[in-house]
Amino acid sequence: MNSMNRAGRALLVATTLVALAAAVPALAAEPARSGPPLWELGGAVFGVSQQAYPGADEHLNRALVLPYFIYRGRVLRADRETAGLRAFKTERYELDVGVAGSFGGGDDEIKARQGMRELGTLVELGPRLKIRLGEGGGHAGSWRLDLPVRGVFDLNDSGRHRGMAFEPELLFQRQAKGGWRYSTGLSAIVADRRLAEHFYGVSALDARPGRAAYAAQSGLVAWRLSVSATRALGRDWRIFGFARLDSVAGAANEASPLVRQTTGSTVGLGLTYTWMRSEASAHD
């Protein structure tokens, strides 16, 4: 990862932790009968092999060791899915502020972008409506529809706004009898023209043989299928893994010269340790 200012590094730590937890829905789950604790303090170590961007034919490999802090208040929350505030929650609906993120890389790592501006580490932040669609008893699992709208910011460029993204996602979550918790999701990523240009636009100055100038357009960026799983290893340790498959088939910018293949994958594996936790239970 390229160098960034101190504020950018601090923000990256916080947002990466929340984004990681969002990718692994049961990461911070506590098996105590009274429910998860109000707060937890611990650390996480994980490695990720990420497709550079949807349509890229190269991967970015990252390994991180980070502290994490989780707080599950009634309104103020920083947990596996929420970053900041939960505006309201009913039996069926919930509105909160969600976060996601992706690592960036320079033209030395992404050959298709040689000579072009680097793709910075991006953080997505914005409101999200969650709709519970149904829940079975025991280990049957539950269905949910997420409707997030997020602003996208580039940590490698002083937090510059790169555009807006909308990613409706249908989720299925289940806790298996063997102690495993897992989730699967199917989503569509839609971007405005500004964000699409960041990924797929090629200016006249950046054009070269095999990479013609291209003006990106708003619309579908990719279809995404994701899976994740986590399991407690005793009281304080937890292992987790996640994978996703992105496809740009039928996407608005499938014709961009920066699109080198139709499908691509991202995988990650990690371990968390909870150092301290509160005696009080969380507010749900």
Rank of each mutant, 00 (worst) to 15 (best):
S3K: 12
T16W: 07
L27V: 01
S34R: 14
G35E: 00
P37S: 01
P37C: 01
L38W: 03
L38F: 04
L41I: 00
G43E: 00
Q50G: 06
P54S: 09
D57P: 00
E58I: 03
P67G: 10
A87P: 02
G106Y: 08
G106C: 03
G106P: 03
Q114D: 12
Q114V: 13
M116Q: 07
R128I: 04
K130S: 13
E135M: 07
G137L: 12
W143C: 03
L145V: 10
L145D: 02
L147K: 03
V152K: 07
V152A: 07
R160Y: 12
R160A: 15
R162S: 01
G163N: 05
M164H: 12
A165I: 13
F166E: 08
L170E: 07
F172I: 04
R174T: 08
R181P: 08
A188C: 04
V190P: 14
R193W: 05
R194M: 10
H198G: 13
Y200E: 07
V202F: 06
S203I: 04
R208C: 06
R208L: 06
P209S: 01
P209T: 01
P209Y: 04
G210V: 10
S218Q: 10
V221K: 11
A222H: 05
R224N: 15
V227C: 14
V227A: 15
V227S: 14
T230E: 12
T230A: 12
A232W: 09
L233H: 08
G234K: 02
W237R: 02
W237G: 00
F240E: 05
A249T: 15
A249L: 12
G264L: 09
S265C: 08
G268Q: 02
L269P: 02
T272R: 04
R277H: 01
R277E: 00
R277I: 01
A280Q: 14
A282H: 07
H283K: 12
D284H: 14
